[in-house]
Design a binder for these strands. Structure first.
Length: 764
DNA sequence: GAGTTTGAAACT
DNA sequence: CAGTTTCAAACTC
C-alpha cells in the first residue's frame, strides 16, 4: 500500500522534524527547505501557473488542483497528531516536500495510487472543493469568500464539531496544514478552529493573507503539488490533463471505493457531513467550483467508475456537487437534528443506496458537464453552475431533509451545472450565495416559514442569478433551443423539459450533439454578446453610451418586438443593436443599430421614449426596485464575467421580474456584466434586462487584464480572467469577432484567450 | 396556467 | 444563401 516514502510522510511530522533522519534528509536534498515562505511561493507560483491552465481548460485546472488537494487531505487521516502540532507539521511537511521534489512525477503518481488506496474518501470531493475554493479565495475578493465562507464554515464547523475529531481527519489536517489557499484547507482550518475556538477568525485572516495560503501538510502533498505543477508548467496543459486524467482515474476509482467504505465504516455521519459541509461551504461561498456536484461523495465513486471516460476531470466537480448537496442537506439536517445529518451522510456514504439516483445523475452531470462543455460550453456551464450552485445550495437548504432527498437528483444535476469558478463571480452570485447561506441558517433554525422565505430568496437570487431552466418538449434539450443546453449545462430538476437528454446520464449523447453543433458553428456555445475592448470605456465616459461597446455576436433579426423585448437577443443581452443586426424598427434602448448610440438631445428624447416603452414592457415586470445601475458599472473585471474566480462584487440584479427566469446573465452582471452596462450608460440602467450570462462574456481588453490580475484577486484574479468564460469568448476561430472594426481589440483579447481555450475534446 | 407572440435555431 | 419549419422563451390574458 504505502510506499516507504509515504510511510515516512505519514509519520507525525513533529517527530519527523526532530528526527535525525529528517535532518539528514534535509541536508541531502538538493532542495533546501524553506519553510512557510517557500511554501507560499510554491502556492503562489502554483496559482499563477495554474492560471494559464485554467484558461486553457477549466477541467484540467480543476483536476490538477483537485489532485493537489487530495494529497494533503490524504495525509490527514494517518496523522491525527497534526492537529496538535500544526506548525511543526508544516515545517516538517515542507521539509518533506523539499525532499519530495526529487521524486519524479511518475513516482509521485505511483505513490499517489498507493496512497489513494490507503487514503480514503475525501480526496475527490475535497480536491474539487479545494480547487474551487482556491479559485475563489484566490480571487481575493473578500466579499465572496469571506463572509459566506465564514458563515458557512461556522455552520459546518458547528456541525462537525462533535464528529470532526474522528471522522474528519482530513479536514483537520487541512486546517492544520493551513491550506488557506484551498477551500479545503480553509474549511479544515475553520472547522478545526471552530471546534476549538472559532473558525471564522482564522478564516478571514487566512483569506486576507491569501497569498500564503497554500501550505502542504503532508510531504506527499508537497510532492503531489510539485508533480502536478511541474508538469503543467513544463509540459503544458495537455500533459497535465492527461496525467490528471490518469491519476484521477485510478485514484478516483480507488478513492471512491474507499470513500464508500470509509463512510460506511465511519459511523459518524457527521464526519462526512463535515467534509461535505466543507464542500458545501465552498460552493456556497461561491467557490464552487464548478462542478459542484451535489452529491459528490457517495455517488461519485460509482459514478466515476461507471462513467468514467474521464473521471479525472469531473471528479472534483462531481464530488463537489455531491458534497455540496449533501452538505446542504446536512446543514439543514444539522440544524434540525444531528440525525438528519447522519442520514445524509449515510446517504452520501452509501451513495449507492438511496442516493444511487443522485449519484448517477450527479456523477454524470459533473463529469459530463465538464467533459461536455470543456470548451465554450464549459464556461457557460461554469457560469450556469455557479449560479445554479447557489441556487442549488439554497435549494438544498430550503429543501431540507425530505425535500432534499427527493430533490437530491435534481440537486445533483443543478450542482453539476454549477461551476466552481463562477463563484468567483460576483456580486450576484455572492448575493445568491449569501442569501443561500442565510437561508440555510434560517432553515437550520427551523420553521417552514423560514424555509419558504429562504426558498424565495434562493429562487430570487439563485434563479435570477444563474440557474437556467428550460421547458423543452421536443428538442430533448439537445439543441440550442434549450437554454440549458445552449448554456452548456445539464438540465436540472427545476427544468420542466420532457424527454430530456441533457443529463449526465446521457453524457455521451450530449457531448456528441454538442460537438456536432460546434462543428457546424464553432461559436454556437460562445457568448452571444461580445464586448469590444475599445468599447470598454471608462465608467462615466460617454462613449460608453455607444452601443458599440458591446454587441451581439450575430445581431438580432427582430421584426415586431422593436428590439425592446427580450425576444431580442441584443436587448436581452443588454447591448445595443449593431450593424450586424437585421432588425426592423429597431428601438433598442441600449443602442439602435442605425445610429446605434443615441447621441445628444435626440438620443435623450429617444431614450426617454424607449425608456417609457421599456418600462411599460419590461420594467414593470421586473420590479424596478432592482435597479441595476450599479451592475452596469463596468469593471475591467466585468469583462471577465465568465471567469469563475472573479470575485463577486456587486451583485447587481437586473430589473427582470423575479418570475422570469433569471437569465444566466445574472452571472455576467455579477462578474463582468456590470462592466458591460456600465460602460454603456444607456441612461436607463434600470431597464437593463439581465443579459444572459453566457452571452455576456466578452473579450477582456488588454488593459483590463492587468486589473484583473491585480484586482482584488491576486493570483486568482488572473485565474478568473482565464475563466472558462473568457475561453468561450475566444473561439478557436475568431472570424466572427472580427466583423466590426471596433472589435479589433476584442479580437486581440480573443486571441489571447485562445490558447487557453479548451479543446472540445473533453479528454484533452 | 393556458394561449399567443416572437425570433432563434434547424431544416430544406 | 434564402426560405420555411420547428422550437421554446417571452409575453399576454
Amino acid at each position: 500500500m504505502d510506499t516507504p516514502n509515504r510511510n515516512q510522510i505519514t509519520t507525525p511530522l513533529s517527530q519527523f522534524e526532530d528526527s535525525p533522519v529528517f535532518n539528514y534528509i534535509n541536508s541531502l536534498s538538493p532542495i533546501k527547505t524553506v519553510k512557510s515562505t517557500r511554501i507560499s511561493h510554491t502556492l503562489n507560483s502554483f496559482s499563477f501557473a495554474t492560471l494559464p491552465s485554467i484558461f486553457t481548460s477549466p477541467h484540467v485546472s480543476s483536476l490538477k488542483e483537485t489532485r493537489f488537494l487530495r494529497r494533503h487531505q490524504f495525509s490527514d487521516p494517518s496523522k491525527p497528531e497534526f492537529s496538535s502540532d500544526n506548525e511543526n507539521k508544516r515545517s516538517a511537511i515542507e521539509r518533506v516536500m523539499d525532499v519530495a521534489h526529487n521524486i519524479d512525477e511518475q513516482q509521485y503518481f505511483e505513490r499517489r495510487s498507493s496512497i489513494d488506496e490507503a487514503e480514503p474518501i475525501y480526496e475527490c470531493s475535497e480536491l474539487a472543493v479545494e480547487v474551487s475554493r482556491t479559485l475563489i479565495y484566490d480571487c481575493g475578493s473578500p466579499v465572496c469568500s469571506a463572509t459566506p465562507c465564514n458563515e458557512i464554515e461556522s455552520k459546518y464547523v458547528s456541525e462537525f464539531a462533535g464528529t470532526s475529531s474522528s471522522g474528519l481527519p482530513s479536514a483537520q489536517e487541512a486546517s492544520e496544514t493551513g491550506f488557506l489557499g484551498n477551500g479545503v484547507q480553509l474549511e479544515g482550518i475553520s472547522m478545526t478552529e471552530n471546534n476549538t475556538e472559532g473558525a471564522g477568525r482564522d478564516w478571514e485572516s487566512m483569506i486576507s493573507g491569501a497569498a500564503g495560503l497554500l501550505v502542504f501538510d503532508s510531504p506527499d502533498e508537497g510532492e503531489a503539488f510539485k508533480g502536478l505543477f511541474r508538469k503543467p508548467l513544463d509540459s503544458g496543459t495537455r500533459l497535465r490533463t492527461s496525467l490528471m486524467s490518469e491519476f484521477t482515474h485510478d485514484e478516483s476509482t480507488q478513492s471512491l471505493d474507499q470513500v464508500g467504505l470509509e463512510h460506511r465504516e465511519s459511523e459518524n455521519p457527521c464526519s462526512q457531513v463535515g467534509e461535505e459541509g466543507r464542500l458545501n461551504v465552498m460552493e456556497a461561498t461561491g467557490d464552487i467550483p464548478a462542478s459542484s456536484c451535489p452529491h459528490s461523495h457517495v455517488p461519485e465513486p460509482s459514478e466515476q467508475i461507471d462513467n468514467e471516460p474521464n473521471p479525472n476531470l469531473h471528479r472534483g466537480i462531481r464530488r463537489r456537487c455531491l458534497v455540496f448537496e449533501i452538505g446542504g442537506a446536512c446543514n439543514k439536517h444539522l440544524g434540525d437534528s444531528s440525525s438528519s445529518c447522519s442520514s445524509f451522510l449515510s446517504q452520501s456514504d452509501v451513495n449507492i443506496e438511496s442516493n444511487v439516483k443522485q449519484l448517477v445523475p450527479i456523477k454524470t452531470g459533473t463529469e459530463s458537464s465538464r467533459r461536455i462543455l470543456p470548451g465554450i460550453g464549459l464556461h457557460l456551464n461554469a457560469l450556469a453552475r455557479t449560479s445554479k450552485n447557489y441556487s442549488i445550495s439554497s435549494h438544498e437548504v430550503l429543501t431540507t431533509d425530505q425535500e432534499y432527498l427527493d430533490k437530491s437528483p435534481a440537486v445533483t444535476s443543478m450542482e453539476m451545472r454549477i461551476i466552481p469558478y463562477e463563484n468567483g463571480g460576483q456580486g450576484i452570485e455572492d448575493t445568491s450565495q449569501a442569501s443561500g447561506y442565510i437561508a440555510n441558517e434560517e432553515f437550520n433554525q427551523n420553521s417552514p416559514k423560514k424555509k419558504r422565505h429562504v426558498q424565495r430568496k434562493l429562487e430570487t437570487a439563485g434563479e435570477s442569478e444563474g440557474c437556467k431552466r428550460c421547458n423543452c418538449k421536443k428538442s430533448k434539450c439537445l439543441k440550442l433551443y434549450c437554454e440549458c443546453f445552449a448554456a452548456g449545462v445539464y438540465c436540472v430538476e427545476p427544468c420542466s423539459c420532457i424527454d430530456c437528454f441533457n443529463k449526465p446520464v446521457h453524457e455521451d449523447t450530449v457531448l456528441s450533439t454538442r460537438k456536432q453543433i460546434e462543428s457546424r458553428n464553432p461559436l454556437a456555445f460562445a457568448p452571444k454578446v461580445i464586448r469590444s475592448s475599445d468599447s470598454v470605456p471608462e465608467v462615466g465616459d460617454e462613449s460608453s453610451k455607444t452601443p458599440a461597446s458591446a454587441r451581439h455576436k450575430r445581431g438580432c433579426n427582430c421584426k415586431k418586438s422593436g428590439c425592446l423585448k427580450k425576444y431580442c437577443e441584443c436587448f436581452q443581452g443588454g447591448v445595443g443593436c449593431s450593424v450586424n443586426c437585421r432588425c426592423e424598427g429597431c428601438k433598442n434602448a441600449f443602442g439602435r443599430k442605425d445610429g446605434s448610440a443615441l447621441i445628444g438631445a435626440e438620443a435623450e428624447l429617444e431614450e426617454e421614449e424607449e425608456t417609457e416603452i421599456y418600462e411599460k414592457t419590461v420594467v414593470n415586470k421586473s420590479l424596478q426596485k432592482n435597479v441595476i445601475q450599479n451592475s452596469v458599472e463596468q469593471n475591467p473585471d466585468s469583462a471577465l464575467p465568465a471567469t469563475p474566480l472573479r470575485c463577486v462584487r456587486e451583485s447587481v440584479r437586473l430589473p427582470f421580474s423575479s418570475k422570469t427566469k433569471p437569465p444566466r446573465s445574472s452571472f455576467l452582471s455579477i462578474g463582468s456584466s456590470s462592466s458591460f452596462y456600465g460602460s454603456q450608460k444607456f441612461g436607463k440602467p434600470n431597464f437593463l434586462p439581465q443579459p444572459k450570462f453566457e452571452k455576456r462574456i466578452q473579450a477582456v481588453p488588454e488593459d483590463e487584464m492587468p486589473e484583473l490580475l491585480q484586482g482584488n484577486c491576486s493570483p486568482i484574479s488572473g485565474i478568473k480572467s482565464a475563466s472558462p468564460n473568457s475561453k468561450r469568448v475566444s473561439p478557436p476561430h475568431c472570424s466572427d469577432f472580427g466583423v466590426s472594426p471596433g472589435r479589433r481589440s476584442s479580437r486581440k483579447l480573443i486571441l489571447r484567450s485562445i490558447p487557453s481555450f479548451p479543446s472540445l475534446n473533453p479528454k484533452d
